[in-house]
Design a protein around this nucleic acid. Structure first.
Ligand SMILES: [Mn+2]
Ligand SMILES: [Mn+2]
Ligand SMILES: [Zn+2]
Ligand SMILES: [Zn+2]
Lengths: 156, 156
DNA sequence: CTATTTTTTTATAATAAGTTTAAATCGTTA
DNA sequence: TAACGATTTAAACTTATTATAAAAAAATAG
């Protein structure tokens, strides 16, 4: 658990950036809220609890830096704000999202699922895929009483 | 070509909205730029050419209305603006996008491709899918000289 | 047709997310 | 210690989008 920070620290150093106290506090907040999809403002408020003197601009700069380093992914669910999602270590694809239009919950799909589709796209459209964003909008299992088969697959 | 407007007009009327001159001008701009992914500002500038007295707020309101009516889809490619994309008439799924990280071009994939994936998600995650957003980021066929097989599938 | 009500638009002000700037701080090196 | 580069802070600024109030247009009633 501590080594995760260390690895991020090394990643920063490898690009000659430092892990300042402010950056560390920000990364810790992200690690401690890995399940969530926090906006910059959300992160700011949480970071302030451990480092009350930090400025919002620093949080923005840190998140931007972490995005460049591919430590986090910046996503947008269509409400007016960007959200920051820790990239699963070692995963070679970005996970997918299920956004519930009833309750607003955002669940994650860690399974790839897109392998075949990407092959078709790369060949059919002669497009070299580097990344993807896949979001489904619909009604989550909590919001419709349908047939509740015991959940397969991982989720939230 | 004219009937497309008429059908949108009917859709508006069915919800007791009117196709005002400003709304009509806005819809026409969208129809005439179906290939593009215009921001509200882009639409505003184009609409001004045919209806110079229109206000930006009206364009925003019209686009919001058309989004509600599912005439357009509001999308976000991660630059700070929302873009509006005419929904292909009769298509039961929203098309996908290929964003080139070299030249910025945005190409479209009209093919569904996601049928199997959606089945897996609906069953595995007990999630009732209503809509989706799929975007691939990578290098478009114009930006890498690789093997240029004569294009299959439709694009841009 | 006029008067009245409802819808829509305009112009402008207000918000809110995100970025930039200049001065202060911190860590390191000469 | 002096000097330098990187970073942060606080505040000003920019830009996209929304809200408000008054004017205009359209629909409805008498
Ligand atoms: Mn996520
Ligand atoms: Mn499109
Ligand atoms: Zn739900
Ligand atoms: Zn390209």
């Amino acid at each position: 658990m501590e080594s995760r920070i260390d690895r991020i620290k090394k990643q920063l150093h490898s690009q000659s950036y430092k892990l300042t106290p402010q950056r560390e506090a920000t990364v810790r907040v992200l690690l401690e809220n890995e399940e969530d999809h926090l906006s910059a403002e959300d992160v700011y408020l949480l970071v302030k609890e451990k480092a009350p003197e930090i400025g919002l601009a620093t949080v923005y700069r840190t998140l931007e830096l972490l995005t460049e380093l591919k430590v986090v992914d910046k996503i947008n669910f269509g409400d007016g704000v960007s959200r920051y999602d820790l990239r699963t270590e070692g995963a070679d694809h970005f996970h997918h999202h299920l956004v519930c239009i009833e309750c607003g919950a955002v669940d994650e799909i860690q399974e790839d699922l897109l392998g075949d589709v990407e092959k078709v796209v790369e060949e059919g459209w002669n497009f070299k895929i580097k990344d993807h964003r896949l979001t489904f909008h619909g009604i989550c299992h909590r919001c419709h009483p349908k047939d509740h088969k015991e959940s397969e697959g991982s989720e939230e």
